[in-house]
Design a protein around this nucleic acid. Structure first.
Length: 978
DNA sequence: CTTGTGTGGTAGC
DNA sequence: ATCGCTACCACACAAG
């Protein structure tokens, strides 16, 4: 193309020199912000093919269509002159000013072409078209946007009014969107590319998306047999269907018309939850707990709580015998449940099945069949095994009856343990005389009643604490009753330790390896009784050691009385785990999935009227040696687990906020999409909805005496919110603001305000004469270099890089109107060295090598890397260098095997910035505080104020003023966006 | 000492 | 085919 440097570089320099200082500063600032804010690759239209050196991609602004160099001519005019694609994103995507800015861009582009003596003829391929993009596309929304407007079309970001768009571009649609868009021309992105390449508008129906079947099937099942062409059909006419750009979810027809899908399918979650026994168990439990909690609260309101004064508690533990199996068998009168081996599992009784046995009856157990075992294995042990289907509704019905009966007995308290299992305290129902007979009478009539109502047998264990009641229940099963009221130590002696609640495989293994290395048989509670308490604490830690010791001696103080401590029984976290069916090809699919999961989480949050201030993402990643496809169908196989959490500056119940955090966390953890086998999102530190906006300024704390802080929060209005969790929160808007945030915040906001002013052609009062170093760092290095010399020439300084021990990240906040704002959050706890990308894991986790490979993923696209926050980028580069030095083969090997096609990584847009949604632009106006609107001055003011008042606390009136200011700021930030 | 993060274990069928 | 969830606790460790 040219000698050293190439035309793109020199024209960039030329262009730069035409700008005023202020314009240049604004350009850099807002371009950088755009990079942060826009969708994947928005800032860089160059799609950066694998064989293109990344050097050229950062400086060349050619509009290169992937796999197709020719299109450059069509788009860019005569020679391969630059389009300055990156600058397109400088012109905002803000919906309100969209058209104006698009025109501005066209105008500017024309001028630039003139300067370079290029053809300024405007293409009119899309004249009359109004285009909207839905969901993730390749090329990105920003690319399509540019292509459309450069070729005479209009682009809109929002379908505000019906019929606003003539075409919608999407690669896939949720069923809901399909319905919504059924009167639009919904086309694949290829329509745009082809139209441009051929220089004329292509027939949209050739690219219609609707009525596309769900992609190619990758499983072996029924490859030839596409029986489902009508699944997506609407009133659209027939059209030829182009090749799908990305493999969609597998879909497999079964005889009953239902389908099996993996995690890529929009309905996966729904299907999964509908059929997951463990999900049902967990939800049932949570629901029951909530129901009983509410019941108790309701009761104590009317009649006040009477603490059970009985010194000798009587605890009853009631539980169905092999619940699922028993209930499922009710529908099968042909089965002799007492004599035939019966179990519950999905998918019938095929001998190769990897389905879990959820529940098996006592006949099965004689053969050695156990709950959780695979049908395949159970079939070997017991060839006559009968597998029944799940009957979730039936389980709920039986459970409902159980709890109705229990409530009717008016025990002192009831604690639901599970769908089929509850603990009761009946101390006050039993007299001191004939205790044993009375208890037996109570329990046997209970058992009879339940059997009569449900036709299912229950067992009952009774003792004077929860532990012993539980163990008694074990002895009572099946279909029996046992009251343990004497000779406790003797009773415990021969029971295996694993029967103790809280003692599972890990503890047993530890006992075997560290305490009883010579024992060959199962360890019993009796053996634990012979141990010193200190000894146990040494091995298991204080809590676990003490618990083991006390349990071994029959001691347990666990309370089952919700009323005595309702707080202890209220939910403190919400999480969703999916570790089955997780198979993804690209990070875009994962992003979508994370949003779906977040939606579920937020539904629950909203039902509870709660907001969360901490989001944790946990993933399962295929272990290094584990097979790509584990033995269990769509199972997760052997995995390593990683988790990361993040504090929210503003507590939220918005799925986009939570989902965005999850996406960030996912990138933070770093996992090749192909290796992902499990996803879990957890939200903690829940705060009542509504309270999150009332939170006090942390320095208000100063005016409250220390003693008052320990007492109730409601006492007087001046007492600040004393939620411990919030003390560590870094940034609260509107009203909670940490001083460190205050120091961090201004420069970025100031830039934005100034940028906004300039855009609005407001008179520039005092534009800063330096560039925020962090902003500067958002730019690709080659650009940085170019700019550096230009700035030096102009005497514009680049601000000192703020020394950052703290990690800065961005929380995107959404409003009801769908607008969004990115808020800068500083998290002091997350020192860079703690990132798993960089640091080796704990000794226990055998994952160091595995992690190195993940790093490779992030390495692929330098531009993407450049978009990362500096600290993160540095880590990745360092890690990458180390990887290159030490081990080069892993990646190549995988690529050879075709497991890591390069395009995957270019698709993946593995950057934080790719996360932020389009309508980032915020219309912050100037708000006055103490006669100034300049953030820097306000900061100084507040800083001085704080220093002055830190000892005695601020004046009430001052606080109010500042709070008002912050509220206004917030209102602007949150509500005044497009 | 405090606090926070990340990991691991357990229970129900 | 197949639906390996989820709340909560405890611990190790790090940073102050």
């Amino acid at each position: 193309m040219s000698q050293d440097g190439g035309p793109s570089e020199s024209s960039f320099r030329d262009y730069m020199s035409t700008l005023e200082d202020d314009e240049l500063i604004e350009l850099i600032t807002s371009w950088s912000q755009k990079r942060k804010a826009s969708s994947p690759k928005a800032a860089d239209i160059n799609t950066n093919d694998a064989d293109q050196p990344s050097h050229s991609s950062s400086l060349s602004f050619q509009l290169a269509q992937e796999d197709n160099e020719e299109s450059v001519d069509d788009l860019g005019g005569d020679d391969k002159g630059p389009i300055f694609g990156d600058y397109a994103s400088y012109f905002a995507t803000k919906a309100q000013n969209q058209q104006i800015e698009d025109e501005k861009f066209l105008e500017w582009n024309k001028k630039r072409q003139q300067v370079q003596g290029q053809d300024t003829k405007v293409s009119s391929i899309f004249t009359g078209c109004v285009v909207h993009v839905n969901g993730y596309t390749r090329p990105s929304i920003a690319t399509i946007h540019k292509l459309i407007i450069l070729n005479g079309g209009k682009f809109i970001h929002h379908l505000s009014s019906k019929g606003a768009a003539t075409h919608i571009i999407a690669e896939r649609l949720t069923p809901r969107k399909q319905a919504e868009f059924k009167n639009y021309k919904v086309v694949r992105p290829q329509w745009v590319l082809d139209s441009i390449e051929r220089g004329s508008l292509q027939r949209w129906s050739d690219y219609s998306l609707i009525e596309v079947d769900y992609g190619q099937q990758r499983l072996q099942f029924r490859n030839e047999d596409q029986t489902n062409p009508h699944a997506k059909q609407d009133d659209e006419d027939e059209s030829e269907i182009g090749p799908s750009t990305e493999p969609m979810s597998e879909i497999v027809d079964t005889t009953d018309g239902t389908t099996t899908i993996d995690s890529k399918h929009p309905d996966f979650l729904k299907q999964f939850f509908a059929k997951s026994r463990l999900h049902h168990l967990s939800t049932w439990k949570a629901d029951l707990r909530l129901e009983f909690l509410n019941m108790v609260i309701e009761q104590s309101k009317s009649q006040g709580h009477m603490p059970t004064g009985a010194s000798h508690r009587i605890i009853v533990h009631v539980d169905f015998d092999c619940f699922f199996a028993t209930v499922s068998a009710l529908k099968r009168p042909d089965i002799d449940f007492q004599n035939q081996p019966v179990c519950v599992s999905h998918g019938g009784t095929k001998p190769g099945s990897t389905a879990d046995i959820a529940s098996c009856n006592y006949v099965c157990r004689k053969y050695g069949v156990k709950n959780g075992m695979w049908v395949r294995q159970a079939k070997k042990l017991c060839p006559d095994l009968i597998c029944l289907d799940y009957d979730f509704l039936g389980y709920e019905t039986a459970s409902k009856k159980l709890y109705e009966i229990l409530l009717g007995l008016k025990p002192d308290c009831i604690l639901p343990v599970s769908i089929d299992e509850a603990l009761l305290e009946i101390s006050s129902l039993i007299d001191d005389e004939n205790t044993v007979e009375q208890v037996q009478g109570f329990c046997e009539s209970l058992r009879r009643e339940i059997y009569e109502q449900t036709r299912c047998t229950v067992s009952v264990g009774v003792s004077h604490n929860v532990l012993l009641a539980k163990l008694s229940l074990r002895k009572a099963k099946p279909n029996g009753y046992f009251y343990l009221h004497e000779n406790f130590e003797e009773f415990l002696h021969n029971i295996p330790v694993s029967s103790l609640p809280g003692v599972g495989g890990a503890i047993v293994n530890k006992l075997i390896s560290q305490v009883f290395p010579h024992s060959s048989s199962e360890i019993t509670i009796g053996e634990i009784q012979g141990l010193e308490r200190a000894n146990l604490e040494k091995v298991f830690g204080v809590k676990t050691g003490t618990k083991l010791f006390e349990y071994a001696h029959g001691i347990d103080h666990t309370s089952i009385d919700i009323n005595s401590n309702p707080e202890a029984f209220t939910r403190k976290s919400i999480s969703i785990d999916i570790n089955w069916g997780i198979r993804f090809d690209s990070i875009a699919q994962i992003d979508e999935f994370l949003f779906r999961v977040s939606e579920e989480i937020c539904n629950k949050l909203q039902l509870m009227k709660m907001c969360t201030s901490q989001v944790t993402l946990k993933i399962l990643k295929r272990s290094k040696g584990a097979p790509i496809e584990p033995p269990k169908f769509l199972g997760c196989g052997q995995c390593d687990s990683f988790s990361k959490s993040s504090r929210l500056g503003i507590p939220s119940d918005d799925y986009r906020t939570i989902g965005m955090e999850a996406r960030i966390l996912f990138r933070n953890i770093g996992c090749d999409p192909l290796e992902l086998r499990g996803v879990s999102i957890q939200v903690t530190k829940l705060i009542e909805k509504g309270k999150e906006v009332q939170m006090r300024l942390p320095f208000a704390r100063l005016d409250a005496p220390k003693t008052a802080r320990l007492e109730g929060k409601e006492q007087h209005s001046d007492t600040p919110m004393e939620d411990k969790s919030m003390e560590t929160t870094q940034l609260e808007i509107p009203s909670e603001l940490d001083s460190s945030v205050l120091r961090e915040l201004p420069s970025s906001i100031e830039k934005r305000i100034d940028a906004q002013r300039q855009r609005d052609k407001a008179p520039i009062v005092d534009l800063p004469r330096d560039i925020d170093a962090q902003v500067f760092e958002q730019l690709p290095p080659s650009i940085q270099e170019e700019l550096r010399s230009e700035l030096r020439r102009r005497n514009i300084t680049i601000g000192e890089r703020t020394p950052k021990r703290k990690r800065v990240y961005y929380q995107q906040v959404f409003t009801r109107t769908g607008a969004s704002e990115v808020i800068r959050i500083i998290s002091p706890r997350k020192s860079p060295s703690k990132s798993p990308l960089k640091k080796s894991p704990t000794k226990k986790s055998p994952v160091k090598d595995v992690k190195r490979r993940e790093t490779k993923v992030a390495k692929v696209d330098e531009d993407v890397l450049n978009e990362l926050p500096p600290s993160l980028r540095k880590e990745i580069l360092e890690e990458w260098d180390e990887y290159e030095r030490t081990n080069m083969t892993e990646f190549d090997r995988l690529r050879e095997r075709g497991k890591l096609p390069e395009t995957k990584f270019h698709n993946s847009a593995n950057s934080i910035e790719s996360l932020v949604m389009d309508d980032f632009e915020c219309k912050i106006n100037l708000i006055m505080f103490q006669k100034t609107s300049q953030p820097s001055k306000i900061i100084k003011l507040v800083d001085r104020w704080m220093k002055k008042t830190v000892e005695k606390g601020p004046h009430h009136r001052d606080l109010e003023l500042f709070q008002t200011y912050l509220s206004k700021l917030n209102i602007i930030a949150i509500h005044c966006m497009p």
